[in-house]
Design a protein around this nucleic acid. Structure first.
Length: 565
RNA sequence: CGGGGCGUAGCGCAGUUUGGAUAGCGCGCCUGGUUCGGGACCAGGAGGUCGGUGGUUCGAAUCCACUCGCCCCGACCA
């Protein structure tokens, strides 16, 4: 391709709305253009990158025997109602009506549609196992799109689904996907951590996420540098830092604590550690039960864990509601004689004694409290793991890191097959629900995460495998070297390189800047002076190295560079 | 949905506090010329419903109300 004829609208300045590197550079480099919040147009360069990523995905999926399909994005509401997700997806699902007022949805994912297809055709254990996948646009009405391509409302996803007759078969299909995913991410130039994850709306048992460590990521993962344990913070488990503590108070009594309502203030006021305070938080379930959550003062409640325990979203109660219910400010509520339906306590308070709780009356706390003084309905792990907590597996100290989720695999089991009646007949003539798995990859996120991880202050640094072009032929003075450059261009193309020829009649500086911004791995500079001596200059984007090569050595040099990049 | 911010030429911004005449600047774009190894220079030029609607006023980019859109921080997910 000639640059002069390409549609590559690069810009000198950062777009107003972009804050993170991938967003800035993808817009500045002329890859993407925003159309609406969380909706982007993909211009030629981005399209090329995406196609390269998709092809790598296809190769790896086909390698494990998966077959590509393409299902509708516009779907009938019935299927969603059958599995209950018409309700549970809530506002995240784009819904619409046709001219006959029939309800439709733009599919946010395809478990239902795939399962229906399986139901129609997979009738016998002889038809199993199967793996079907597609690369398709999904629609989710995200509450808050952000970070350019990191969180959008319309996005390409590779989603695959496995259908097995046995649980062992599911394990195998799952493992195949895991291996394929590791290949895909490594081939697209990403280092990923595989972490235990919450299965959320998908349901099912095991699930793991593929995470790219990046400060722009909106997920947080916990990992143990010693033994390699890693998990999404939503499900991460750990032992508390200092497990047994007893306060200086020797008997239970009410003390006046005027105006001190936060844990920090109470700790300072009473002269004790925050870990000796038991924090009480009031939550409300969807079915309107009041749950008092108790947790050690130096920890935060994980609402993800809480929701999992109750199987529904819990809402932290408002100040107004607490005032009405307790006749006290939120900072002063406590578990003793609390007017609630249930008291649930985090494991972190199990070993405490003579601790401090709210007095359920403004400006009062109760000190010297023991667990016997409280009627706790149950204990559970409700804590959000903190930096420095202790690894359950090896006793090492845990670390926290931000990450971008680029893939997620689930063992679904029979949730969808059972509710939609996708049954097969086994060898004994028994009808059983098909055992399923579902596996997703965010295609656009691979692109964005790549830029997050691979960039410098000049622009993007693509890995060779997914670069929009592999080689950029840069002419210093187009008028003088056009014939030479054209020959070189044809030659490199004939050797299979994806090459762009910067034949524009503009200053060399601008061409270098564009090449760096757009992130083409290798530039070959054609200078009128140097070609007289039979040399060309090679510039390597990643290392910043520049060196001259003899014309006849160019191809072998490129071959070597290709291996490294 | 709660909190914070923004909307002025294709892009990035100033002007709004304290209302006033032809709404500015840089980049980009067009024409001519000189240049040609790190976003060139000179000369000339085009380009605006000041997000929208309604109001206040002799007069609104500027004040008021409503509204639309976008970004960032918190609860979901690829």
């Amino acid at each position: 391709m000639r640059w002069s004829q390409s549609f590559i609208p690069t810009r000198k300045e950062n777009p107003r709305e972009a804050e993170i590197a991938s967003h800035k550079y993808l817009v500045r480099g002329g890859f993407i253009e925003q159309h609406a919040s969380g909706v982007y147009a993909f211009l030629p360069l981005a399209r090329k990158v995406i196609l390269k990523i998709e092809n790598i995905i296809r190769e790896e999926m086909n390698k494990i025997g998966a077959q590509e399909v393409l299902l509708p994005a516009l779907t009938n509401s019935d299927v969603w109602k059958d599995t209950g997700r018409w309700e549970s997806f809530g506002n995240d699902m784009f819904r619409l009506k046709d001219r006959w007022e029939r309800e439709l949805a733009l599919a946010p994912t395809h478990e239902e549609i795939m399962t229906l297809l399986a139901k129609e055709h997979l009738k016998s254990y002889r038809d199993l196992p199967q793996i079907w996948y597609q690369i398709q646009t999904k629609f989710r009405d995200e509450p808050r799109p952000r970070g350019g391509l990191l969180r959008v409302r319309e996005f390409a996803m590779k989603d695959s689904y496995s259908f097995d007759a046995t649980w062992e078969g599911l394990d195998e299909s799952y493992q195949k996907h895991k291996n394929a995913y590791l290949n895909i991410f490594s081939r697209t130039g990403l280092q990923v951590s595989v972490v235990k994850a919450s299965s959320g709306l998908m349901g099912g048992s095991d699930s793991e996420e593929f995470m790219v460590l990046s400060k722009s990521g909106e997920d947080r993962i916990v990992y143990c540098p010693k033994c390699g344990y890693s998990a999404n913070i939503e499900v991460a488990e750990a032992r508390v830092g200092n497990p047994f503590v007893q306060s200086k108070f020797t008997k239970k009594e009410k003390v006046h604590t005027p105006g001190v309502r936060t844990v920090k203030e109470v700790a300072e006021f009473l002269g004790i550690e925050p870990s000796l305070i038991v924090k009480s938080l009031l939550y409300r379930t969807q079915d309107k039960r009041d749950i008092l959550v108790l947790i050690r003062g130096d920890y935060e409640v994980s609402e993800a864990k809480l929701s999992k325990i109750y199987g529904q979203e819990l809402q932290l109660s408002s100040r107004e509601y607490i005032l009405k219910k307790f006749n006290a400010e939120p900072g002063f509520i406590g578990p003793i004689d609390a007017p609630v339906d249930e008291i649930i306590a985090d494991e972190s308070i199990r070993n405490l004694s003579r601790f401090v709780v709210g007095g359920n009356r403004n400006d009062y706390h109760i000190v010297g409290v023991n667990l016997d003084d409280i009627k706790i309905n149950r204990f559970a792990d409700l804590r959000e793991v903190r930096e420095g907590d202790i690894c359950l597996k090896c006793g090492g100290g845990l670390s926290l890191e931000n990450a971008i989720e680029v893939g997620h695999i689930f063992k679904l089991g029979t949730k969808y097959s059972a509710s939609l009646g996708a049954m097969f007949t086994d060898q004994n003539g028994e009808k059983k629900p098909i055992i399923m798995g579902s596996y997703g990859i965010g295609v656009g996120r691979i692109m964005a995460a790549n830029v997050e991880v691979n960039h410098d202050d000049k622009g993007i640094i693509w890995p060779f495998s997914i670069a929009p072009y592999e080689v950029d032929i840069i002419e210093i003075d187009h008028k003088k070297t056009e014939d030479f450059a054209f020959k070189l261009y044809k030659e490199l193309k004939s050797k299979g390189y994806d090459v762009i020829w910067d034949d524009r009649d503009i200053g060399a500086g601008a061409k270098f800047k564009d090449a760096e911004l757009v992130g083409i791995p290798i530039s070959v500079v054609v200078s009128p002076k140097k070609i007289k001596d039979g040399t060309l200059e090679v510039q390597v984007r990643k290392t910043g190295k520049q060196f001259d090569v003899r014309e006849e050595e160019l191809l072998s040099q490129l071959k070597n560079l290709k291996k490294e990049l």
